[in-house]
C-alpha cells in the first residue's frame, strides 16, 4: 500500500504540475485579454512534436532543439491570437471560443499528415532506468522527479518575471486595468500577443517534458488540454498560484482515484469533483469572490 501511495503521489505531482503549467497558460491570456486558446492541447502537442522532429529526426543537439521548438511555439501563439482571437474580440464576438477550436483541428491534422500517424517516443536518458526511492521496492524515472520541480520552478520564474521585469509588470498592469495600461504607453495589442505567445510556450514546455514519458503524436494533447482547462477554472482563472495548486490537486486526485478505484471511474469522479467544487466556490478554489456591484 505504501509503495502504491508513494508511486501515486509521485506520478500525481508530475501530471499535476504539467496540468498546472498548461493552466497557467490559460490564466495568462485570460488575465490579459479575457480570452483563451480553447485548443491549448494542440499547443502542447506542437511543443512535443517540434522537439521530437528537431532532436530525433534532424538530430540537432537538445540545447538547440528545445529553444527553437519553443520559439516556434511562441510564433504559433501569436498566430492563434492574430487569426482566431483578435478578429473576434475586435468585433465584440465570442466566436473566438470556436475559432480557436477550429485552428486546433487544423493544426492537429497538419501535424498528422506531416509528422506521421505513428506514436513516437522522445528518448531521454532520464526515462530509461528507474532509480529506487526509499527502499520501497519501487523505481521512479528521474524525469518523474524532475518534472514537478521544473513545473514549480517555471511557475516561480514566471512570478519573478511578472514582478521584476518591465514587460512582466506591463502584462500584470494590462490584466488589472486595460485603459490605465494604455495610458502608461503599454501597447496593448503587443501585450496580448505576448501573452498568447507565453501561454503557448508554457504548453509547449509541458509537452516536451512529458514527451519522454508519454507518446508523441498528433492528438496527444486533446484530453490533456481539457483537463488543464478544468484545472484553470478550478483554481479560479484569476489567480496564478491558485491555478498551479489546483493543477497539483487535480493530478493527485486523479492518481489517487486510479490507485484506489481503478481507472474506469477517474473521469466520473474528477469531473464530478470539479462540479461540486465550483458549486461550492463559484469563482474557483482560489479565485477571489467578485464583490457584487449594484
Amino acid at each position: 500500500m505504501d509503495t502504491q501511495l508513494v508511486s501515486a503521489l509521485i506520478s500525481g505531482l508530475g501530471m499535476g504540475s504539467m496540468y498546472g503549467l498548461m493552466a497557467l497558460g490559460f490564466y495568462i491570456t485570460f488575465a490579459v485579454s479575457g480570452t483563451v486558446n480553447f485548443a491549448q492541447g494542440s499547443s502542447m502537442m506542437l511543443g512535443a512534436v517540434l522537439c521530437y522532429t528537431f532532436a530525433q529526426t534532424l538530430g540537432w543537439p537538445i540545447w538547440l532543439a528545445v529553444p527553437v521548438a519553443l520559439a516556434l511555439c511562441a510564433l504559433y501563439g501569436v498566430l492563434v491570437e492574430r487569426l482566431a482571437v483578435r478578429p473576434f474580440v475586435r468585433r465584440g464576438s465570442d466566436a473566438w471560443l470556436m475559432s480557436t477550436v477550429a485552428l486546433g483541428i487544423v493544426l492537429d491534422n497538419v501535424v498528422m499528415h506531416t509528422f506521421g500517424k505513428e506514436p513516437r517516443s522522445l528518448p531521454s536518458s532520464l526515462a530509461v532506468s528507474p532509480v529506487e526511492v526509499g527502499g520501497l521496492g519501487l523505481g521512479v524515472y528521474p524525469l518523474q522527479l524532475i518534472i514537478p520541480l521544473v513545473g514549480l520552478a517555471l511557475a516561480a520564474a514566471l512570478h519573478l518575471v511578472a514582478r521584476r521585469t518591465r514587460w512582466g509588470s506591463a502584462l500584470l498592469a494590462t490584466s488589472q486595468n486595460r485603459d490605465a495600461a494604455r495610458l502608461m504607453g503599454i501597447p496593448i495589442s503587443r501585450a496580448v500577443a505576448g501573452a498568447f505567445a507565453l501561454s503557448t510556450v508554457l504548453a509547449g514546455v509541458a509537452g516536451m517534458l512529458i514527451a519522454p514519458l508519454a507518446n508523441v503524436n498528433s492528438d496527444m494533447g486533446t484530453l490533456f488540454g481539457l483537463k488543464a482547462f478544468s484545472v484553470a477554472i478550478l483554481g479560479g482563472i484569476t489567480s496564478a498560484w491558485g491555478v498551479m495548486i489546483a493543477g497539483l490537486l487535480f493530478g493527485l486526485a486523479e492518481s489517487l482515484i486510479i490507485m484506489s478505484l481503478g481507472s474506469g471511474y477517474t473521469h466520473i469522479i474528477t469531473f464530478g469533483l470539479v462540479i461540486v467544487a465550483l458549486a461550492l466556490r463559484p469563482n474557483g478554489l482560489f479565485g477571489r469572490a467578485e464583490v457584487k456591484k449594484v
Binding site: Q4, S7, S11, G14, M15, I258, S263, T266
Partner: peptide, 16 residues
Amino acid sequence: SEKFDGDAIDVVPQLT
C-alpha cells in the same frame, strides 16, 4: 482484472 486509459502514463497502481 484491471482497466487502464489510453493516455495513462503510470500503470503502476493497476499492475501492483
